[in-house]
Write a protein that binds this DNA or RNA. Structure first.
Length: 478
RNA sequence: GGCGGCGUAGCCAAGUGGUAAGGCAAGGGUUUGCAAAACCCUCACACACCGGUUCAAAUCCGGUCGCCGCCUCCA
């Protein structure tokens, strides 16, 4: 039974889809005004993994991830570049897809954009104006009346009074400092939309309420996910708006992933340490990044260092090597003993994943199967070989759920430069010729020559391994 | 100031009452012409510190120290 930590209760709770089969899930997507960075990769990978595991466990998942394509930063960027908001957002949406595809993040079912749901937002704000939870100020500003909503603060554990005290320079036109903007009156030179109360554009939070309500009805939907920084104010305000408008809870489970730090420092523009995904892909395969991200429980903050990506890359080598060796044994039918090995490994894997998506523990199980594969492979006995196949099969199934590659040829294992330089890759016949030359040198005991060839191949990123009977294999190093 | 999180080996990281998973690194060994990979062995009487509860605590309670996040745009 899957248990998930629900921010709403602060506890792990047993998760069941509200209708028993289909999980309706909303994960907050990016504001598309710049390239995706490490911080975007974490929620994408975490919730993609959750989705995969839910599907693996027999659920159908309907996933919605929004694009915030109108906000201050996009407007500023458009001005700076003499471009339009639409061009800016589209450019970074395209990049986002590329960067997430590389990480093997499955596409959501729907990617609603804020600008394409303005009418839904207007309707929602109107509803809140009508029922007294919102009020107009000035030209066309609309605020949410926080104190009228009794459940305010339940998610983040803050009271409206605490919020009030913390607010820096609150807009003095507000009735109360803790109130937040639903709609912003139009300013010159900024995009705006006509509404019954005047021209303007949406506040930040309203889009998620409008779009999740539209695509994941009826409320409450099952899972709402995002980075932990969104707990307050974003998600707290979403809950207030939605529940005040519809009189129903918004979502049953609220899941929040921890942060990524860079060398133990917060990643932020001001520190100049924002790590773009495409930069990371230059040197490390996306699969290594994904493995690194899954190596820590999703609610714990993690610190990125280049060493850790190297470690993850080494881990991938180990995993793929074992699977390759097992594959060479061919496709054989498992007997009872091997079948049990498989079942047992998968059971442990499931237990780890069931425990609030404990991918770090699940990786422990995966490495266990890798070890068992290697171990069995070494004995050469028939039963051992069947067990090796069983563990390799289990490892393959786990990798699939985790969204990690099972074979070396997977695109996820290519760095960006490699992906771009596909044509320049030496062909296999050429590599084999070198291998044969080296083998010949070895039989002649011309070890200076054979070692020279090996060294040169390593420099070029290829590893040559000697096998029994004078055979060899050459593999591309990750 | 308010709210919250964290502190487990050289590094990373699971483990939330029953006697410390796993990965990387390191050392020794098997194997090898030498390597690589794999396998075997070693690597925390110990889980920031102090006190308490308990037959039993890394795990619960109290306190101390240290680090971090949110409260303002942020994944």
């Amino acid at each position: 039974m899957l248990k998930l930590h629900n921010t709403l209760s602060g506890k792990k709770e047993e998760f069941r889809a509200s209708d028993g089969a289909t999980v309706r899930m909303y994960v907050c997507g990016p504001t598309v005004y710049s390239s995706s960075h490490l911080g975007h990769a974490r929620p994408a990978v975490v919730f993609d993994t959750l989705r995969r595991y839910l599907e693996f466990s027999g659920h159908t998942v309907k996933l919605v991830t929004n694009f915030t394509d109108i906000d201050d930063k996009i407007i500023r960027r458009a001005k700076d570049e003499g471009s339009t908001e639409r061009e800016i957002s589209q450019k970074y949406i395209n990049e986002y897809f590329e960067d997430m595809d590389a990480l093997n993040v499955g596409r959501a079912d729907i990617y609603p954009k804020a600008t394409e749901h303005v009418q839904e937002m207007i309707d929602l704000v109107q509803k809140l104006l009508d029922n007294g939870y919102a009020y107009r100020v000035g030209e066309a500003d609309v605020f949410f009346r926080v104190h009228k909503f009794s459940g305010y603060g339940r998610l983040s554990g803050r009271t409206p009074d605490q919020v009030k005290e913390a607010r820096i320079e609150p807009d003095e036109r507000k009735e109360n400092a803790e109130d937040f903007a639903l709609w912003k009156a139009a300013r010159p030179d900024e995009p705006s939309w006509e509404t019954p109360w005047g021209k303007g554009r949406p506040g930040w939070h309203i889009e998620c309420s409008a779009m999740s309500g539209k695509y994941l009805a009826p409320l409450p939907f099952d899972i709402h996910g995002g980075g932990q920084d969104l707990v307050f104010p974003h998600h707290e305000n979403e809950i207030a708006q939605t529940e005040a408008a519809f009189g129903k809870p918004m979502a049953r489970f609220w899941l929040h992933n921890g942060f990524i730090n860079i060398n133990r420092e917060k990643m932020s523009k001001s520190l100049g340490n924002v790590f773009n995904l495409r930069a990371a892909y230059e040197s490390y395969p996306p699969a290594a990044l994904r493995l690194f991200l899954l190596g820590t429980h999703y609610r714990t903050d993690i610190s990125y260092t280049p060493e850790r990506l190297k470690e993850a890359t080494a881990g991938l080598e180990r995993i793929l090597d074992a699977l390759e060796k097992a594959e060479k044994l061919g496709d054989r039918e498992l007997n009872d003993e091997a079948e049990q090995e498989y079942e047992s490994a998968m059971k442990h894997f499931g237990e780890s994943m069931d425990d609030d998506l404990n991918t770090a523990a699940a990786l422990g199980v995966l490495y266990g199967s890798i070890h068992e594969t290697n171990l069995a492979l070494q004995s050469g006995q028939d039963q051992a070989e069947l067990n090796a196949i069983a563990h390799a099969k289990a490892a393959g199934a786990m990798l699939k759920v985790l969204g990690l590659p099972t074979r070396r040829s997977d695109n996820m294992l290519k760095t960006r430069s490699e992906a771009g330089a596909q044509a320049a890759a030496p062909d296999e016949a050429l590599l084999n010729a070198l291998g044969e030359a080296r083998a010949l040198a070895r039989t002649e005991k011309a070890f200076a020559v054979s070692d020279f060839i090996r060294e040169r191949l390593i420099e070029l990123g290829y590893e040559i391994r000697d096998l029994p009977d004078g055979k060899f294999e050459i593999k591309r190093r990750l």
